[in-house]
Each structure stands twice: as structure tokens, then as C-alpha cells.
Design a protein around this nucleic acid. Structure first.
Lengths: 133, 133
DNA sequence: TCCAAACCGATAATGGGTTATCACTATCAC
DNA sequence: GTGATAGTGATAACCCATTATCGGTTTGGA
């Protein structure tokens, strides 16, 4: 009745793309990176694999100003989105006190903190006067 | 050269929908509520007005797990999204220490904290044993 | 009042992410 | 090795928020 999942090159490629990522990836980015390990990989297969990985709780959806992204289910952390280069970064640590912000009677099950601004690269590029020769 | 904007019933209706809202609204919700003040209002006009209000910094886009929403530009605050009834709520207050979470060199321009879970209504509805007769 | 043009409503079109379809291929228990 | 079938790639289709189009309407300065 239940289909037996198979171990295919494509699934391994998508998993590897997630494993080697240092932050959330868009489906397109997953595709681009996974193609390094399975050149013929199609975008539909990428979405199929992501769906499967999410069902297995190995990958999570991350809402972002840049669009939907995906990353390996990690220990709790937050994100920084660079408004210049449109990249996403993971941030270690958390803020205290978030649970007590909800009004009386509300049941807080999760929270997400997202910082936006300029990553180190872009911040330096846009204010080069400091280190310019 | 620059067109002179006019004061129309439709614009007033959309503004009023935002003024009377107690939290972020989807474009559809803005439409539904504004139609109370301008029954013939079309969805295209709602988007036109929202665009204009955003350009004037009177309304802001709010990314949410529920989808894109809009609200009057307010003093800084955060949001709670109910995963059951799909409503959005504003939360007063803020969390300390968010600025220091960004890695060295990153320039944090804004932050958004979103809590998810059950609002008071839904929390009570799903755990009625406490107050059940 | 008059009229140029800003604005409107209805709806078709767009755009981007995601999913369904289908003929072909690869996996793996036997 | 063989064969049933899960998986795959290409692509059409879908979904939904948003925008463009266009003929008719409303606004507001003269």
C-alpha cells in the first residue's frame, strides 16, 4: 500500500545542496546547486524532493521579504535578509522576552525574528570611505 | 506635469478601512471593508489606492505566513498570526537586544518579530475543558 | 456651468512560485 | 538478470496576488 521510497541520485543531490548551504535557499538556488551533483536535474524534481523533506521534518519553509526559501530543520535561530544582494543569512542566538509579548489568552507556539539591512559585504561596498585608499 | 490627485469617494473608503482596522489587512479584506463605504468599489481601485498610500508612507506592506497584508504606518510594533483562524493581530512592545544579534559588520536597518500560534478565541475553542460547564 | 483629465469598474493579462501530466528511466526485491 | 513500479525531466497548467487596459464617469478649477 505505502510506496517504498527509493534512494536516487536526484534526492541525494538535493539533500547535499541543503547540507552544504549556510542559510536558507530559494527553490531556484537549490536547483542550481544540486545540479552540480546531478546535472540533468529538473526543477519539478527539486520541488518534489523539498516536499518530501518537509514532510519528514528535515527541511523547513522560511518566509522572507525575498520570497519563500527553504533550509534544513535546524536548532532554533533567526535570519538576516540583505536588502541589497538579496541573500539570506542565519543568525545565532535569540531574543529574550518574546513569549510575554502576546496578549492575555494567546497561545504562542513559535516565533520568528527577521532582521533586514545590509550584510557585511554590501555595507562595506556602500560606505567605502572608511577603508578606501 | 505632475497629476493632481483628486479626493474621491473610493479613496476615502479605502483610507477609512485602514483607519478602522485593528491590525494588518489583506487586499481582499480591505476591499470587503471599504465596500461598506463605497459599494461599487472595484478590486483594482483598492490596489491603486494601496499603492498610492504606500508611496505616501501612510501604509506599509506586512509579510506574513498568511500572505501579503497592509496596515497604516504605525509606531513600531510586531504581529501575531493565528494559525487557526488566519487572522493577524498587532502586538505592543518590543524585544530588547535584537540589534546585537547581527554578525560583525552587518548593518541592521529594521527588524520584524512575528509570533504564531492560537489567538485567544481559538485557544479557548480548542481547549474548552477548563471552562466547560 | 463646462470640460480636460484624473479616476473608476470590470476584466483580461501578467508574473512568479508551485504542481500535474505523461512518456520514459532507474531502482531494487526477487 | 528481470520486472513491477517509484522516480524523473520537460513542460503545460495552475494558483493567486497584482497590474494593465479601456470605455465610461466624476472631479474641480476656470
Amino acid at each position: 500500500m505505502a510506496a517504498k521510497p527509493r534512494n536516487t541520485e536526484q534526492k541525494r543531490a538535493v539533500c547535499r545542496a541543503f547540507e552544504e548551504a549556510d542559510g536558507p535557499l530559494s527553490a531556484q538556488l537549490v536547483w542550481e546547486r544540486a545540479k552540480a551533483f546531478a546535472p540533468s536535474l529538473g526543477i519539478a524534481t527539486v520541488y518534489r524532493c523539498i516536499k518530501e523533506l518537509i514532510a519528514q521534518d528535515e527541511v523547513q519553509l522560511v518566509e522572507s521579504p525575498i520570497g519563500p526559501m527553504y533550509e534544513r530543520s535546524p536548532r532554533h535561530h533567526h535570519h538576516f535578509f540583505c536588502s541589497s544582494c538579496q541573500r539570506a543569512f542565519c543568525i545565532a542566538g535569540c531574543v529574550p522576552g518574546w513569549k510575554s509579548l502576546a496578549p492575555q489568552g494567546f497561545k504562542v507556539l513559535s516565533h520568528e525574528l527577521s532582521l533586514s539591512g545590509l550584510c557585511a559585504d554590501c555595507a562595506q561596498a556602500t560606505t567605502p570611505e572608511k577603508n578606501a585608499p
